[in-house]
Structure formats: structure tokens, C-alpha cells
Amino acid sequence: MENEIKILVCDDSMTVRKKLVQSLNTIQPCIVFEADNGNSAVSEYEKNMPDLVLMDIMMPEKDGIEALSEIIEMNPSAKVVMLSSVGTKSNLKKALEVGAVDFLQKPCEEDKLRNLINTYSRKE
């Protein structure tokens, strides 16, 4: 269990969260935490200190960029990958400026998800 990576999945859509959790469990054993809005994402991060965060940009109460900003403030080396349906260049630029390590366009293809996990979830 200690070697299992911890991943926080933040998306207001339960359909997306379920699909992501299924894919993550197919890729490798992991402990997954879920959040359905930006506030919950920040508190779940603080509580569980996951190795990797998958964060939707468009969420109610507090959007993904704001939540990303608070998580980076808490832990500057946090690995946060932004997810979005809207893959415009402006969104990507904004997320990277705030501190996201990468950006994943929905629908999240399993191969791309696997690469991200391999790249960003190594224990340091």
C-alpha cells in the first residue's frame, strides 16, 4: 500500500470522475481521492497530500485555476495536471503560468493518462 501512488481527481461531473477512476485503476494500483469543486479540491489536497492532481478547469464555487493557485501556494512542487474540454491556447497558457505541470484534453485517453502518471507520479 505504501508504494501505491495517491491521485486526487477533481471534476464537477460524476461521469468524468467515474471514467477517470476506472482508467486510473486499469493503468496501475492507486489510491484515488475525489473532489467535485475547487474548494473541495483544495481541502482534499491539504488532507491527503496526493502525488498527482488531475484538475478540471471549469468547476462551480471555485474554478480549477483558483484551486491550482491555492495548492501551489501550499506546496510549490505540487504536480497538478489540468483537464479541460475547452482546449484553447489561452486556457493552456493560463494554467501553465499559475503552476500546472501539464494539460490534458478531454476525453482523457488512457495512453496519455498513463504517460502523465509515469512522468509526474514518481516518488522523489
Binding site: M14, V16, S84
Partner: peptide, 16 residues
């Protein structure tokens, strides 16, 4: 949620 997310996904791909 599922239908809303499908619409969101489709519209997202259109914006790309």
C-alpha cells in the same frame, strides 16, 4: 450529468 458531460465534451472538441 452524463448527457450534460457528453454535450460539454463535444462542444469542447469543437472549440479545439
Amino acid at each position: 450529468d452524463s448527457i450534460g458531460e457528453f454535450l460539454n465534451l463535444h462542444n469542447g472538441l469543437f472549440t479545439v
